[in-house]
């Protein structure tokens, strides 16, 4: 299945991430760890959990940037996970068929039992969304919580990607970006949702919403009193009842 689906997937499941309200809290990164630790890609190994070089497998990471805009600038937090690209180079380079994009919903997955751990897909992905498990010797990545979003063993409210359920600000939305009527598609339209590195030609499904423009300024207050003495005089007969 290293070839991409011949026709565009019926559904394009993905995430929309609102950079305007992401506070960089990392809830999406640890909730992702927590679901996937025992999930399809389990374990999401930690190599040196209590040691000198803490490092491990994460499907989602949140960066902090400052943007110099000529004024006072701004700080922007930026979560980064697999974008489930329509034109996923990570899939086409895979020599084993371990990487595949699902026909049904466009989710890009790795079949760990087939993966030989050549890492070529991680070289092909522009976004660093592939996470090689050095311990297991296979490539892992965001599964879009494929074992959660459809899982009839879970309460309906829990059938959401873990990162989306957890995100306290509501900066992460999940849905079918192939359906123009979906909530996520509407968000993308209304807020000018964009692709990361469009020049790479990957046609990402996930979209990012830009931080909003800062609001306009108000005029200062007009004086009602000239000075302290005037104010006290002016207010001496103010009548309000308790």
């Amino acid at each position: 299945m290293t070839c991409l689906p011949k026709s565009a997937p019926a559904k394009k499941l993905g995430l929309v991430i609102d950079l305007d309200i992401c506070v960089g809290c990392q809830a999406c990164t640890t909730s992702c760890k927590e679901w996937n630790a025992g999930g399809r890609a389990a374990p999401v190994t930690d190599y040196d959990a209590y040691g000198a070089t803490p490092d491990g497998v994460w499907f989602n990471r949140v960066h902090g940037y400052e943007v110099e805009d000529g004024g006072s600038g701004r700080t922007v937090y930026f979560p980064r996970s697999c974008l489930h690209c329509d034109n996923a180079p990570c899939v086409t380079v895979c020599p084993t068929g371990a990487s595949f994009k699902r026909e049904a919903d466009g989710i890009v997955l790795v079949d760990e039992d087939k993966c030989i751990g050549c890492k070529l897909c991680s070289w092909a992905c522009p976004y660093g969304a592939r996470e090689y498990d050095e311990d297991a010797g296979v490539m892992k990545k965001c599964t879009l919580c494929v074992d959660k979003i459809y899982n009839a063993n879970l309460a309906p409210a829990s059938r959401m990607p873990a990162c989306v359920s957890a995100c306290p600000t509501g900066a992460r939305s999940f849905g079918d970006l192939g359906d123009p009527a979906s909530g996520v598609s509407r968000l993308v339209r209304e807020r000018g949702g964009y692709d990361l590195m469009p020049e790479q030609g990957t046609a990402p499904v996930n979209k990012y919403l830009p931080p909003r423009a800062r609001t306009a300024e108000a005029a200062p207050l007009a004086s009602a009193v000239n000075d302290r003495g005037h104010a006290l005089l002016k207010w001496i007969d103010k009548v309000f009842s308790r």
Binding site: R40, E103, L109, D111, Y150
Partner: peptide, 8 residues
């Protein structure tokens, strides 16, 4: 396409 257990 590999089988994916979506409801473990």
């Amino acid at each position: 396409e590999p089988f994916v257990d979506t409801a473990p």
